[in-house]
Simulated scan of single mutants.
Amino acid sequence: MKKNQHYVWRHYLKPWTKNDKIWCKRDEKIFNTSLNNVAQENYFYVLETLSSDELAIIRNILDKIDETAIPVMESNIDILVKASNSKGDEKKEYLENYHTFIENIGKPLLESLYKGDLEMLNIQRNRDNFSYFLGLQYTRTKKIRHSLMKDFEPLFQKPEHKTINIETISHALAFLSADFLGNWISSDGNFTLIRNNTDIDFLTSDQPIYNHAFNFESWGSPEQMELFYPITPSLGLLISSKKIPHFDASSELISYYNNKLVSESEEFIFSTNESQLK
């Protein structure tokens, strides 16, 4: 039984570890610990049963964002319904197992990027799979779920909505919104590798992918997207609507990305060393 469910993929964090431990900062406390102890909660992916009213609200929100979205997303809506209606151990592991499935698809593509190889993205199926993988890594986090709860809470203060579970709706929308982000990456995103040969490592956090050109939590279709994803302490991935050649970053740019990543984090900041977290 997978009781401890991670909202940041442990395999992703491995490049920041030494002897299977990672340096972390949380609530101004700096410590060195196992990946099993960070960015996880008991049964984080368990989805409570969606009522017919809640499912109707979710469909209505999706329809307002993009009227063509629901037919395209039916399979993922079906996954959510099955996850919410399942019982016992199956309910506890349903979405956790789905995330593991997507991680296994993304893993070899991420390994290629470690080597500086983007050729695999020239194959449309690989590009689509990796784009959805990235979308899910963005939206699966605790921060995104909490942000959606905060955004939607004012909409459900009326007495007629007292049976609506905002946490359940936010969980479902976080899962479904990976499709929107993945579709943008696949259709309009350009991939740029940022090499870090400085003496300052890329940091990462419990919100490892962030958009510094747009506030994703505001929803809608952004005019501009630019995602940054540190994939190792010495390599970052930029995904932009612009075509930007791969490049070596300056210390100033590394510091900029690190500072932005810290500001976008929820609880955890991760590093290869203690000093960079002070």
Rank of each mutant, 00 (worst) to 15 (best):
M1P: 12
M1K: 09
K3N: 14
W9F: 04
H11K: 15
Y12W: 12
K18P: 00
A39H: 01
A39R: 03
Y43E: 08
F44H: 08
N60K: 07
T68L: 08
P71W: 07
S75H: 13
N85W: 00
D89A: 11
Y94A: 07
H99Y: 13
I105S: 02
G106Q: 14
G106M: 05
K115R: 14
K115P: 11
L118G: 01
E119K: 13
M120N: 08
R125A: 14
R125Q: 12
Y138E: 06
T141Y: 01
S147H: 04
S147C: 01
F152L: 15
L155N: 13
F156A: 10
E160V: 11
T163Q: 10
N165S: 13
S170H: 05
L173D: 10
A174S: 15
F175Q: 08
D179Q: 08
L181H: 14
W184T: 08
S187Y: 02
G189W: 01
N190L: 04
F191Q: 03
I194N: 07
I200G: 09
I209D: 04
A213F: 00
W219G: 14
P230G: 05
P233N: 09
S234K: 13
S241N: 14
I244F: 00
F247L: 12
A249Q: 04
L253R: 12
I254S: 08
S255K: 11
N258T: 12
K260N: 03
L261A: 13
L261P: 03
S263C: 07
E264C: 10
F270K: 11
S275E: 15
